[in-house]
Simulated assay, not measured.
Amino acid sequence: MIRVVLADDEAMVRAGVKGILDKDPEIDVVAEAGNGREAIDLVAEHRPDVAVVDIRMPGLDGFAATEAIRRANEGTAVIMLTTFSEDAYIAKALRAGANGFLLKSGDPRELITGVRAVSEGAAYLSPSTASRVLTTLSGDRMARAEEARALVDGLSPRERQVLALLGAGRSNREIGRELFLVEGTVKSYVSTILTRLGVRNRVQAAIIAYEADLVAEDR
């Protein structure tokens, strides 16, 4: 069972998101918060697998709440949910440590897919935001590609294989099955890769994998 804490200041939105998640028998919304501070407290209390956090909330916003949740609860992944798709929001969500980013206007199935993906250790971006993330963080595409290739060249062949699969959105379990590794070994590789690439989370590592053409090579 995937345990979820849901945070949004609008009760009707919370009800709608909960209704979508309740359609999956393997997802259980264990608590609901109406603001960022409450979300932090409920995550600390329930230790869920995933927190679904709205960006715009009164008092402590979703960015600050996400940073606090990720810092204090290593086992809880965070999906940021918003009605806005501005590039600055996407970039800020990634810097806050979010594992996923979804638009409220997207396909409801993306929410279930995203929750399942991040609960298994993968990063998840809705298709409508993935290309914008690459554009937002790329800047000069040629320069970024060269920088990404230089970073990837510092990895071992096995680390590059893991990074390619991570970039393709695979979870640790799926990477392990494909490369015939136990999940604990995959986690160790991912941790080392993040450190060597100088990034905070899997989403940023996935972007480097795309920029270095590792994902295309893997496919």
Results as ranks from 00 to 15, higher is better:
residue 64 A to R: 05
residue 108 P to A: 12
residue 121 G to D: 05
residue 190 V to I: 14
residue 99 N to F: 12
residue 23 K to S: 09
residue 22 D to M: 13
residue 213 D to T: 04
residue 107 D to M: 13
residue 30 V to M: 00
residue 26 E to N: 04
residue 67 E to N: 06
residue 124 Y to N: 04
residue 201 N to I: 00
residue 88 A to C: 09
residue 201 N to K: 07
residue 27 I to D: 00
residue 204 Q to L: 14
residue 130 A to P: 07
residue 144 R to F: 15
residue 129 T to H: 07
residue 173 R to N: 04
residue 135 T to C: 08
residue 87 D to C: 07
residue 60 L to N: 11
residue 216 A to I: 08
residue 53 V to F: 08
residue 126 S to M: 07
residue 124 Y to T: 01
residue 18 K to N: 06
residue 147 E to L: 05
residue 144 R to I: 09
residue 186 V to W: 04
residue 198 G to S: 13
residue 161 Q to G: 03
residue 62 G to H: 02
residue 109 R to T: 10
residue 85 S to Y: 07
residue 93 A to C: 15
residue 68 A to R: 13
residue 49 D to C: 00
residue 66 T to V: 04
residue 69 I to Y: 00
residue 93 A to I: 09
residue 160 R to C: 09
residue 52 V to G: 01
residue 44 A to S: 14
residue 128 S to K: 06
residue 185 T to S: 10
residue 22 D to V: 11
residue 179 L to E: 02
residue 171 S to E: 02
residue 150 A to W: 05
residue 9 D to F: 11
residue 43 V to L: 02
residue 163 L to M: 02
residue 151 L to S: 07
residue 161 Q to K: 05
residue 143 A to I: 04
residue 87 D to M: 15
residue 2 I to D: 00
residue 55 I to K: 14
residue 28 D to P: 00
residue 137 L to D: 12
residue 144 R to T: 15
residue 6 L to Q: 03
residue 25 P to G: 00
residue 65 A to M: 01
residue 170 R to Q: 05
residue 140 D to Q: 07
residue 88 A to M: 13
residue 192 T to M: 11
residue 91 A to M: 13
residue 70 R to G: 05
residue 145 A to C: 10
residue 199 V to P: 14
residue 214 L to S: 09
residue 171 S to M: 02
residue 59 G to Y: 12
residue 26 E to M: 03
residue 151 L to N: 09
residue 138 S to G: 11
residue 201 N to L: 03
residue 12 M to V: 14
residue 101 F to I: 06
residue 42 L to E: 05
residue 147 E to Q: 12
residue 165 L to Y: 02
residue 181 L to M: 11
residue 100 G to D: 10
residue 188 S to W: 12
residue 95 R to N: 13
residue 57 M to P: 01
residue 9 D to V: 09
residue 16 G to R: 06
residue 47 R to L: 14
residue 61 D to L: 07
residue 130 A to V: 07
residue 92 K to W: 06
residue 177 R to H: 11
residue 113 T to S: 13
residue 17 V to R: 10
residue 54 D to P: 02
residue 164 A to I: 00
residue 69 I to C: 01
residue 83 T to E: 12
residue 114 G to Y: 06
residue 190 V to F: 02
residue 61 D to C: 03
residue 6 L to I: 02
residue 159 E to H: 08
residue 115 V to Y: 02
residue 197 L to M: 10
residue 4 V to Q: 06
residue 211 E to F: 14
residue 141 R to Y: 12
residue 30 V to K: 01
